[in-house]
Design a binder for these strands. Structure first.
Lengths: 223, 223
DNA sequence: ACAAATATAATAGTATTACTATCATAATAT
DNA sequence: ATATTATGATAGTAATACTATTATATTTGT
């Protein structure tokens, strides 16, 4: 994935931040170190004060970039979904066969993230662990509807919609393309979580990953 | 479901509470009102201080029942899963045909909760909305592994295991019974959430509920 | 009926969180 | 060289998530 991504910027809804963190060195440090800290200590223990100390800066300076840590989480997860979307579009674009195209798409969105250094200040492996462990918390709030209207979840929604469209291309008669698409995305995060913490509740592990499970599931459903 | 449940007590791991809330009037009021409050204001805004005011009692008295609100959430959700498990076992027990048995099980665990007054102080409809909106937060923590070892999630795990066993009875060759079972349970909560907040990401709505989607999915997969 | 035990209530206090506001200083742009 | 903008330092506030202590009910055992 390295090649093109170096010159691509993932566009995030500018209502999510006060000041674009990509626009300065301090902003990039905020992103870089918050990924390290949230993946290490979890979202609830993470605070702007601690982040300030870590980046050798001040709590008040961080507030100039993000209103609160919830918005920062929205930023990070949006970035992740945008990164996946880019890979999805780029990789499947040239595939004509609808089945192979959908297969490739499922592989991309369900696979375990391993190493990638396209964005120097963003550790995609740690970021994907944040998405697995914290993404639900970004929308399971009393403010979802307002924030959804503000467009805070557009990238994720677009990703589900793209998957859904590919599903329909394979089988136009299938009645639940949206539900299946959202099940794949959300279910994949869940299976990844289960394999790390509730191994008895999943058949996924080192060798048999969530990708295999979902590839089999989807191909059977659309047959 | 009314009949038998009146004389049944749902057993919750006694490490979850300091003092059994079922053992006193105050305890029952804590459960009753916390369900109302959490469903109304969301888990993050809910505090023991506010609950104290609501039940005409004192913050410090609530701490005699639960160490913190996280434990209270574990209690409430465990109760919910125990309640579902009871219905599952009771209803499917007499069904000999493995397919019909699994179908019935899926209906029970994925359906929208409507009215039930078996437990006077517990509003199952509101409780199910709490499970949909907050359950993930109970395990997406840095303490999962410790708490899992303490047995805080046994009821939920048992429910997944039961479903998984029924899946295997229908098709012993299917490779992912555990993943499918956990996908049904978690995915059902997710589809319910989507239909309320992200309707474009699901095909479920008033008439076509998550039950239909999962019934079709599972029957196709195990064919 | 009375003392002892237990449950609940009231009050106070602490460290931390999630901010806001103000002012000083450093970097950069014109 | 000056004005603008970005960052840093400090202080302050209300709320949270508790703990500790003491007082007052209520229940129970004899």
């Amino acid at each position: 994935m390295e090649h093109l991504l170096r010159s691509v910027k993932i566009e995030i809804n500018d209502k999510i931040y006060v000041k674009d963190p990509e626009s300065s060195d301090l902003g990039k440090r905020i992103i870089e170190k918050s990924i390290l800290m949230i993946s290490e200590m979890g979202f609830e223990s993470f605070t702007f004060k601690k982040l300030g100390t870590k980046i050798g800066s001040n709590e008040s300076s961080i507030y100039r970039y993000f209103e609160n840590k919830h918005k920062l989480l929205l930023y990070l997860t949006s970035w992740y979904w945008g990164w996946l979307e880019y890979q999805l579009v780029f990789t499947t674009n040239s595939i004509a066969d609808t089945k192979r195209k959908l297969e490739k798409a499922i592989e991309i969105v369900t696979k375990t993230t391993v190493e990638d250094s396209s964005f120097s200040h963003i550790n995609e492996v740690l970021l994907s662990s944040i998405v697995i462990n914290e993404y639900s918390k970004s929308y399971l709030t009393k403010e979802v509807d307002v924030e959804n209207k503000e467009g805070y979840f557009v990238i994720y929604k677009r990703l589900v919609t793209r998957l859904s469209a590919m599903i329909r291309e394979v089988n136009a008669d299938y009645k639940y393309p949206n539900s299946l698409a959202s099940t794949i995305l959300e279910g994949s995060l869940h299976q990844h979580f289960l394999k790390d913490h509730f191994s008895s509740l999943t058949d996924c592990h080192k060798d048999v990953d969530p990708t295999r499970y979902f590839l089999h599931l989807v191909s059977t459903i659309l047959k």
